[in-house]
Computed example of a mutant assay.
Amino acid sequence: MTTDAQKVFLNDPEHPLVHRKSALVINDNPATESFTLAEEVALSINYNGINHAVMLVTPNDIEDFILGFSLSNDIIQHSRQLYGITLDYNEDYINADVEIANQAFWNLKKNKRTLAGTSGCGLCGAQALEQVLPKLEPVRAVSLPEPGWFEGLRDLISRTQVLAQRSGAVHGAVYVDLMRNILACREDIGRHNAFDKLIGAITTKKLFQPEGIVVLTSRCSLELVQKAIRAKFSILVTLSAPTALSVKWASRHGVTLVHVPKRDAPRAYTPNR
């Protein structure tokens, strides 16, 4: 049931995640026009009554985001440790009360990491080097798909991103099988948030396939690779270039990292053998 507070965000049943705003077009004949913009809200996440993080997010698929965030940040080890999510929609923010298993909560308190800030925040608030460079179990390396799999991939992803088509300003995280069927797509203003939403959706809907491929529209940083490792993804494709450190970690942990440039051929960074 949609509450009155939720309707502040969902005020347009057909396009609940975008708003139209007027802006002055600066050219030889200045004029005011209306443009579509993506929504952005603050999300406060509390585990067992204690605040853990405040993130700026696109206000859709919030449950997927919280599950994915909890898994990819090693707060819970599996979805069974997340008992429930209660969302409270306010005018300027969403408050999420998350109930997790006592063992997971004890580990969270022991390894307290406070995140505060922005949708682009990856490692802000980390209190120890071990939190930035954790020990992770390698994934099972798999073979690359045929070269033809990558042909027209950018257009395929662009057609899949419904919110980006309306407003721009959002990143996409897409799960694709070897036949190029889109299994899931999640979008958010934050590249980390979009990936967490996708991880949550794959977990909730039991979509995981050993040879499934994740495609991210953003550049690839270290924490995105760490999320892929924790989620057991063997192939990670990005539409913008990876960093050297992300390639190093992907290679070390069995992940094949593929960069698909706009005009040049795909570049695959394969694991160390």
Score class of each variant (00 low, 15 high):
65 F>K: 02
67 L>N: 01
120 G>E: 15
12 D>Y: 03
81 Q>P: 02
113 R>D: 12
98 V>G: 00
44 S>G: 11
53 A>T: 12
29 N>T: 13
36 T>C: 02
17 L>S: 01
112 K>G: 11
96 A>T: 05
25 V>W: 08
30 P>E: 02
61 D>K: 06
55 M>A: 12
105 F>E: 11
20 R>Y: 09
89 Y>G: 00
56 L>C: 10
32 T>S: 09
31 A>V: 08
80 R>T: 13
75 I>C: 05
62 I>R: 04
103 Q>V: 15
110 K>G: 06
44 S>P: 01
67 L>Y: 01
21 K>R: 13
87 L>F: 01
29 N>R: 11
99 E>S: 12
63 E>C: 06
83 Y>A: 09
116 A>E: 12
59 P>E: 03
17 L>T: 07
9 F>H: 15
31 A>M: 10
95 N>M: 08
54 V>D: 12
10 L>C: 10
12 D>T: 03
76 I>N: 09
104 A>M: 02
113 R>V: 11
25 V>L: 14
121 C>F: 10
12 D>N: 15
114 T>I: 12
9 F>L: 14
31 A>S: 14
36 T>A: 01
117 G>V: 00
87 L>G: 05
53 A>I: 12
85 I>K: 05
101 A>K: 07
13 P>C: 02
74 D>P: 00
63 E>K: 13
98 V>F: 01
77 Q>T: 13
22 S>H: 08
107 N>Q: 15
16 P>L: 08
11 N>F: 09
66 I>P: 00
120 G>K: 14
18 V>R: 01
39 E>N: 12
37 L>D: 06
46 N>E: 07
21 K>C: 07
91 E>R: 15
12 D>G: 05
79 S>E: 15
9 F>P: 06
71 L>S: 04
102 N>K: 14
23 A>D: 05
30 P>M: 03
38 A>N: 11
50 I>C: 08
119 S>Q: 14
51 N>H: 13
46 N>R: 07
100 I>K: 04
21 K>L: 10
74 D>T: 10
95 N>Y: 11
62 I>W: 03
37 L>W: 07
40 E>W: 00
12 D>S: 11
89 Y>F: 14
29 N>Y: 08
46 N>A: 08
83 Y>K: 11
112 K>W: 15
55 M>P: 00
45 I>N: 06
82 L>R: 02
18 V>A: 13
58 T>K: 02
113 R>C: 02
67 L>H: 04
108 L>W: 10
117 G>Q: 06
39 E>D: 14
21 K>W: 10
99 E>Q: 14
72 S>V: 09
70 S>V: 01
124 C>D: 07
